[in-house]
Design a protein around this nucleic acid. Sequence first.
DNA 1: AAAATGCAAGAGCAGTGCTCTCGCTATGGC
DNA 2: GCCATAGCGAGAGCACTGCTCTTGCATTTT
Lengths: 227, 227
Amino acid sequence: MSASGVRARVRAEMTEEIKTVARRHLASDGANLSLRAVARDVGMASSAVYRYFASRDDLLTALIIEAYDSVGSAAEAAMAKPADTDADRLLVLSHAVRDWALADPHQWALIYGSPVPGYQAPQDTIGPATRVIFAIAKIVQEAFTAGRVVPVPEPTGRYAEELAAVAEQFGPGTPPRLVGSAMSAYFQLNGAVSAELFGQLNQTVEDDRRGFFEFQMRGAVAFIGLT
Amino acid sequence: MSASGVRARVRAEMTEEIKTVARRHLASDGANLSLRAVARDVGMASSAVYRYFASRDDLLTALIIEAYDSVGSAAEAAMAKPADTDADRLLVLSHAVRDWALADPHQWALIYGSPVPGYQAPQDTIGPATRVIFAIAKIVQEAFTAGRVVPVPEPTGRYAEELAAVAEQFGPGTPPRLVGSAMSAYFQLNGAVSAELFGQLNQTVEDDRRGFFEFQMRGAVAFIGLT
DNA sequence: AAAATGCAAGAGCAGTGCTCTCGCTATGGC
DNA sequence: GCCATAGCGAGAGCACTGCTCTTGCATTTT
C-alpha cells in the first residue's frame, strides 16, 4: 500500500542514518573508517549494512558526493553575496572554501587528498566535483563579459586547445584563457588549503594563517587579471 | 669480534631489504601496504619484521624520510644546473619535482597527500621535508641579493612577523617577503602537482599536462618577481 | 666455557571487509 | 483475504590485518 511504500521510506531513513554515523566516524578516524564500527553505532549487524551499500567504497562514495555538494554550495553561497569588486568576490569565495575545510578537515582530505588506493571515482562524483570551479569560472566570466579583466598572458601550445574544448561548455565564444585562469585560481586555492591542512605550514606560519592565506589568494587573483 | 660486528651489518642489510620491498608494495598498494605481505615477500615471519621496525607506522616513517630525501635531492640537482635566468632555474626545479612525482605517484601521495589518520610525523621527518622549499628559497635569495628581483607586494599583518622569524633561519637581514615568495611558489608547485596526480585534471587537460603545468608555474614565478 | 643478548618463528588476540545462509515481515497480485 | 515474493536483519564464517608473547636457536660477550 501507500504507493510510495512505507518500506521505501524507512529504507531512505536508514540509508541516511548510516551516512550520518559514517560522517561522524569520518571526522575522527578519517578515510579508513570501519564499516563494522559504523554498523555497531547504528545498532545493527555489519552484514545488514550491505543491504544499503554494496561495499565500503560505495559508502565512501556517498560521503564523497555529499562532501563535494557541501563545499560546492558553500562556494556558491559565497559567490552570490554582493561584493565591491570581482577580486573581492573571489576572495570571499576562497575564504568560504577554506572555512569549510577547516571546519571538517577529514571531509576535505576525502575529496582533495590523496585518493584511497584502489579506489576509482565513479561517474556520479564528477558532477558535484565541478561545482566549486564552476563558481570560480562564473566569476571570471562575468568579469570578462563586463570588460573588467586586465589582460593576461594568453595560453599557447597544445594544452590551450584542450582548454578551448572545455571552454565550449561555458557557452560558445568563451576564450580559453578564461578557463585557464579559473583553473589556476582553483588549483592555487586547493593547494593553499591543502598545504595548511596537511601540515606543510607547521612551525612556520602558526598564528595568522588566515592572513597568509589571503596574501596567497590575492596573488592568485591578481595573476588572472581580476581587479 | 669485528668491532662493528657482523650482526650489525646483516641487520643493516635486512633493514634495507625490508624497506626496498616495502617501497615496491607502496608503488602498487599505496599507503595501506600490509606489513604481513611485505614480510612474506622478504621471506620471513611477520613477527620478525618487528625486530627492525617497531610498528607499521615506523616503517612508513622510514619510507617518508626516504621520499623526502629523494625529491629533495632531485630538486637540488635541478637547481644546481646552469640556467639563463632565475625564472628558468625555478622552472627547471619545478619540472624536476613534477617528473619525480609522476615517476612514483604513491611516494608523492605519501608525503604531500592527506596524512594517514592517526599518524603524527615524528621529528626525524622535518629535516628532509624542508629540502625542496629550501632549494626554492635559495634561488629566490640569490636573485634578491644580486638585485634581480622585481618589486612585489610586501606582506603585511601578523603573519608577516611569523615570516620574519622564519627568515632569520636563512641568515640575518633576509627580508620576510622573500620567505613569503618562496612559500607561495612552493605551495603553488605542490598544488599543481597534486591536482594533476590526484585526478583533478581528468577530462579537461589530458594530453599536454606538462605544458599546462609550465603555464601555471610561469605565473607563480612571475608573481614572486623572478625574471 | 658460560652467560647474556639478538633474532626468527609460531601461536594467538582482536579487529577488518565481505559472503552466505537462515528466518522473519512487509509488500503486491490474485 | 490469502499467498507467493521480495526485502531485510542477524549470525556464522572466511581470509586477512597489526601486533604481542613465548619458545628455541645462534651469536656475541664476559
